[in-house]
């Protein structure tokens, strides 16, 4: 009957590293939007809850060649053999075939953290403490997102609550589908420099399509073959070298035989020291 509650889309993101100033507005907006609790101070760097986290990248060269860039890292919504979904023992996380969004259902979660061990992006967070908010903050909770309890895993879901609200509004108007501009994650809206782009990766009419197919685009750990749906954009060679080693997306070598270890070694040498090639030639 009505199979098409929505049309099939593949939501994805393009994040322009060259534009990102590392201001952290996306992190704040995300926490507010998703009722993310604030862990007590002992949480430190590695026990916090940051569905999106801005990392500082550095080229590790002295002035004047010193360069810094910022990398907002969130759940990459892997599209192939999604590492976390395949390992969860009880379907607490799944990938929506309609949208490609990887979800996390905290009420089903056992807190075994196997998905966290499986995720190479460290984009999943465990609630180490009972959730607490600054006094009175419960009053301004987002009603479309349910807060999580202690002892479960949580992570970015592309502000799925916003999509549900958009779908509901569309339904009230008698529409089964939402327009592209009706659903935008909070981080995108908060970004003051417009570094974050969001949309349907399969729709050639969208700006996103051109961005992710442009020369500046690459994906993080693409070589692992998990088909992440977050693309990063950068023209800076050192950023591209640091984040992307240029290995083809397919996990196996293209001709199916043994991978070319010598070529790989050469690439790695280049990645570490781009001038090695020039020196070798001279």
């Amino acid at each position: 009957m009505s199979r098409n509650t929505t049309h099939r889309v593949r939501y994805g993101m393009a994040i322009d590293i060259d534009r990102c100033t590392g201001c952290g507005a996306c992190m704040v907006a995300c926490a507010v939007e998703n009722n993310v609790s604030v862990p007590p101070p002992p949480a430190g760097d590695r026990k916090g809850l940051t569905w999106i986290r801005v990392y500082r990248l550095h080229n590790e060269r002295p002035y004047p060649e010193s360069r810094t860039a910022y990398l907002p890292l969130l759940c990459q919504h892997c599209g192939h053999h999604t590492p976390c979904v395949s390992v969860c023992p009880q379907h607490a996380t799944d990938i929506d075939p309609e949208t490609g969004i990887v979800s996390q259902i905290p009420e089903r979660c056992l807190g075994c953290r196997y998905c966290m061990a499986a995720c190479p992006y460290h984009a999943r967070y465990f609630t180490w403490w009972d959730p607490v908010w600054p006094a009175g903050m419960e009053e301004i909770f987002n009603p479309d997102v349910s807060p999580r309890m202690r002892g479960v895993v949580e992570k970015c879901n592309f502000c799925h609550g916003r999509r549900q609200v958009a779908l509901q509004r569309a339904a009230a108007e008698g529409r089964r589908q939402i327009r592209d501009d009706e659903y935008r994650p909070a981080c995108l809206e908060a970004c003051p420099v417009g570094a974050i782009h969001f949309g349907n990766l399969d729709d050639p009419k969208q700006e996103l399509y051109d961005l992710v197919h442009g020369e500046r685009a690459f994906r993080l750990l693409e070589r692992l073959g998990t088909e992440p749906k977050i693309y990063y954009l950068s023209s800076q060679p050192w950023v591209r070298r640091l984040l992307h080693n240029g290995i083809p997306a397919s996990r196996r070598h293209p001709d199916g035989g043994r991978p070319d270890v010598a070529a790989l070694r050469h690439q790695q040498v280049l990645a570490r020291d781009p001038r090695a090639e020039e020196r070798r030639r001279s």
Partner: peptide, 17 residues
């Protein structure tokens, strides 16, 4: 002790992936 929600241990049996 290691899992965050020991009382949900039976979920794995009831909803096995």
């Amino acid at each position: 002790i290691d899992v965050g929600q020991p009382l949900r241990a039976w979920f794995t049996f009831w909803h096995p992936n």
